[in-house]
Structure formats: C-alpha cells, structure tokens
Simulated assay, not measured.
Amino acid sequence: MTPAERVRATLAGERPDRPAVTVWRHWPGADQDAAAHVDAEVRHRDALDLDVLKLTPSAAYLAEGWGARTVDRGDPLGVRDYLHRPVSEPAHWHALPELVPADVVSLAREITTVRLARARVGPDVPVLPTVFSPLSVARYLAGEDVLLTHLRDDRAAVVAGLATITRTLVALVEALVDAGADGVYLSLFPASHRLVDAGTYREVALDGDRQVLEAASATWLRVVHFHLPEPLLEVAPALPAELVSWEHTGPGPALAEGMRLTGRPVLGGVDQVSVLRDGTPAGVRAAVRAAWAATGGRLVVAPACSYPLAVPPAHLRALVEETRALGG
C-alpha cells in the first residue's frame, strides 16, 4: 500500500497492510521561508518513512497577516513570542480587514509551502497543512485574557471580528487545496472547558469552524485538533472532518471515550511530553500498543500534538518501528 492508501483504509474502517503513522514538530527559522520549511519537513518525513506529511508552520502566521509582530526566542516547542498584538479594544475587532491570502506575505508563504511540498513528495503521500480556527486566530490577535474579556463584555464585537477572520480563512483553505493539499489540520485552540463552555463555543465559533472545513470539502483528509486539556469534544460531531486529535492523556476523555463522543477515528495515541520526550523507547512502544488496542485499530498513530524539539531521535524511531510491527 502507498501511504495515502493506508490512511484511506483507516478512515474506511479497514485494516491497512500496516498502520499509518506520522509525527510533526515546529521548524523555527526554517518556517519563515517556504523552500527551507519544505526541505526540513520532507527530510524529516523521509528519514522516518512517515505516512502523512503534516506541515507545521509558525503558529503566528495568520495573526501576522493582520499586523501581529513576533520573534523566535528559543521556545522548547519552537513557537514564536508576541511583541505586538493588533487587538486590544473591542473596536479593533470591527476594524479587521478581510485579507486576500495571495497578497499577504505570511499567508502566501504557506500556499507556496504546500505547492512545493506536493511537488517534492508526489501524489502518494498526503500533504496536510495546518490552519488555525477563527477563534484560535482571535486568541493570537488579542491574547487569551483580552479575548475572554471581550467575549464577556462585548461579544458582538468579537463575533464581527470572527466573521472577517472566517472569510479570510475560507479563502486561504481554498488556495491551499488548489496548491495540492489533501485536506487541512484545523487547530481549535480555545475549544476547551478551561476557556469557554460548550454553549458559548457553539454560539460564537462552531459555524466558523464548519465553514473553514467545508472550504476543503473536495479533499479527503480533514483533521480537527483540540489543543488544550478538557477538550470540547462534544462539538466534534457537528464538524465535517475525517479524523479527530486531542490531548487524550490529560484531564478529559481517554481514547475510547473520545471516539465514542466524536464518532471519528483518531490521529494521535502517544503523549508528546510525558512519553515521547520524557519517557523511554520501551515506554513509547507500550504507548503505541495501548493506543492501538484502545481504538480497535481506528488510528493513525501520532503524538497528540507537535512534539518538543528535545525529543530524542531514538524515541521517534521507537514510535515508528512499533507501529510498523503491529502489522495489518
């Protein structure tokens, strides 16, 4: 089977010749240039023989399109720090302009990244770019505390800003698909009981998430990723996606319960910190086997999120090798 055939078999509830597997990380520095980013991603994929090329850009790329300024300060995950956020007052949400992705440097870079990646890996390796949900982008534009304050005190202003962000994201996803993406990995950063309740999320965010995913309706591999512990998995059934990813080892549903709540197969299974970074190769192998059993094989084996830059290469090899050893 090709990598794409393995993933498609998993989505269909069939057993591939061997389980599909992938891992991903940030690429600080390289992620500021499309060619350098693709080179790092493809070398990483080829070295581990991964089944999905999940492209992981700077998490700030969308906020930078609206004027955020960021800097790389050596974060352990490779994410950038914010020097300036363009939203501090409710009126700023109304003033956000709708962006044309091809005309904005940080967004156009990600379209080029997909085009270059597609050319490098050919048609048989799924290419999955990362997009952040409208409410996630709002969090980056304002910061978490300001966003939550505005949601409480002037929700209409936030909703107006989210509408503008959503239209831009729809255009971006359409461009990514045209460039050769097989789907999108949509990160729902604030979709957690720690930040908002399910009613608020459904009211202000869910329709925007749905629109962004529907912009990739011609593709076959859409992932919704719940970034924080205590994820709002109860909203997942309303989203058009083929795989669900969440922090399954923290507070919140374990793998089997999450599958029941979402009705979807899983992308994940291995904790990227306690197991993949801080554990042992034997512990990584045990986590792979446990995840496979818990999901009944409805699983693309992966970390729950981007793995820290300090993960030992031997741990990555153990994850891939144990997955391959499970067979079909």
Rank of each mutant, 00 (worst) to 15 (best):
R324F: 00
A157Y: 11
L176R: 13
R222M: 05
S136V: 04
L11W: 15
L176G: 13
E321P: 00
V114P: 04
A163H: 05
A282C: 09
G208V: 05
V21C: 08
S88T: 14
E322R: 02
L99E: 02
A91T: 11
V38A: 08
R115F: 03
L50K: 11
L172P: 04
R120W: 02
V114D: 09
L221F: 15
V284K: 09
R298Y: 05
T10A: 00
T249Q: 11
G252F: 13
A163M: 01
Y82H: 05
R289I: 04
A218S: 15
H248A: 14
M1K: 06
L243S: 07
V38Q: 05
R155A: 02
D178R: 15
A142G: 03
I165W: 06
L176E: 13
A302M: 10
E5I: 01
R45A: 04
L162R: 13
A160C: 02
T295F: 08
G13Y: 04
T280L: 04
V177G: 02
E5N: 08
V288Q: 10
V114N: 12
V137N: 00
T280M: 04
T56L: 10
D103S: 12
S88F: 06
R85Q: 15
V270P: 08
G279C: 09
A60P: 01
G13Q: 04
G161Q: 09
L116V: 07
L195P: 00
D46Q: 15
G250P: 01
P237M: 13
P251V: 03
P86L: 10
L147M: 06
V177K: 01
Y201G: 00
L55V: 13
A95C: 03
D207F: 09
L213F: 08
V114C: 09
E98C: 05
L83Q: 14
G67A: 06
R73T: 15
L99S: 02
A142Y: 00
H248L: 03
H26P: 00
A157L: 11
L188Q: 03
V273A: 13
L99G: 01
G268Q: 11
P229C: 04
A236T: 05
E110S: 00
G183D: 10
T56M: 12
S58L: 08
L299M: 11
R85H: 07
G183E: 08
H227L: 12
V223S: 05
T56K: 12
R317M: 06
D49H: 11
A236L: 04
G296M: 09
A34H: 05
V158H: 01
R118C: 05
G183P: 09
L50Q: 07
L176W: 14
P281W: 14
A181D: 03
S187K: 02
R139H: 12
M259Y: 00
T130M: 08
V170N: 05
W246P: 02
V223Q: 06
D178M: 02
A63I: 06
A171Q: 14
V177M: 05
T200L: 15
D207Q: 15
T168Y: 01
